[in-house]
Design a protein around this nucleic acid. Structure first.
Lengths: 156, 156
DNA sequence: TCTTTTTACTTGACTAGTCATCTATTGTAG
DNA sequence: CTACAATAGATGACTAGTCAAGTAAAAAGA
């Protein structure tokens, strides 16, 4: 007579999972949700969402040339329309600048602004700390095993 | 000279991660995204989203009494306004019924309809198969280790 | 060179999730 | 019993992500 798993309790499910793989998959989804919420909670006081923060970080990494809209989208795994409007909001808040690329007028190049860089600077310490705290009590071996398993799951 | 990790390549990042924990945390987020997309792709042909499907499954588990609105929300970890509107859409599609609870007129009780049950029935086989395929090539030991680590990460 | 295709977005219409606010009840303390 | 607090939801306003179309510019083909 097994005890109900922790996840099973969390979602108040009566029946046990049909399989361990199913439980693990749901565990990944719920854990991602928790990590995501922690991230949002950290960002909110700065008036930015985690996705906007990710875009700014990508753009900082692409300084000083900047990047075309869709290239940012590819790095975020997001579909086009979303990234366009996300950039609209970042531009409205003056954290990014956009202009038509003169060499290829279909593209719109994006660069992070001074204000955007300053924002990232202000958030840096908080973010660094928080990104690790979810896996605080894990050994190096465990972390590596986790990384490897997740890589395999994504490839499947 | 280490090779760039797989995840680092996936997101086309130049700099290596500041820490393995950070890489693992991002790995969880990206893997969840992949699993989620596979789920949506499976649901879409049936005219339902994965979140709507989850609600229907919760309601099936609560037959024949049904559940009040917020209780469904708690099991989904979702905030109130979202679940209310999600149920609006499910009701419009005739997959759930809702009515005021006579004992406590603040509550709105929800039950899955016959059509909703039939839908779940039709989807069952596909869903069962898909929920396991992301972790197809994992041993029982690996799966258990993964589940345990994810549990710990959520508790942290 | 002129037409066709492809590429890079943009716009419109949804689903979804969040916060803040508001309403209807119920529960509770005087 | 009545005023006040707590609970269950609904509504409005955003951010975000998805698909389906539409536009403009560049690239390819005849």
């Amino acid at each position: 007579m097994e005890r109900a798993s922790q996840l099973q309790q969390e979602i108040k499910q009566r029946k046990p999972f049909r399989s361990k793989k199913q439980e693990a998959a749901l565990g990944i989804l719920r854990t991602a949700d928790v990590i995501h919420r922690r991230g949002e909670a950290l960002m909110a006081p700065h008036g930015i969402t985690s996705q906007q923060y990710n875009v700014l970080r990508i753009l900082r990494g692409a300084e000083p040339e900047g990047l075309p809209t869709l290239e940012i989208g590819h790095r975020l795994v997001e579909q086009t329309p979303g990234i366009t409007r996300l950039l609209d909001r970042l531009e409205k808040k003056q954290w990014v600048k956009r202009w038509r690329c003169p060499e290829d007028r279909r593209q719109v190049l994006c660069r992070i602004s001074k204000a955007g860089l300053a924002l990232l600077e202000r958030m840096q310490a908080d973010v660094d700390r928080s990104e690790e705290e979810s896996l605080q009590n894990f050994s190096q071996n465990e972390i590596q095993a986790l990384i490897d398993m997740l890589d395999r799951a994504r490839k499947a």
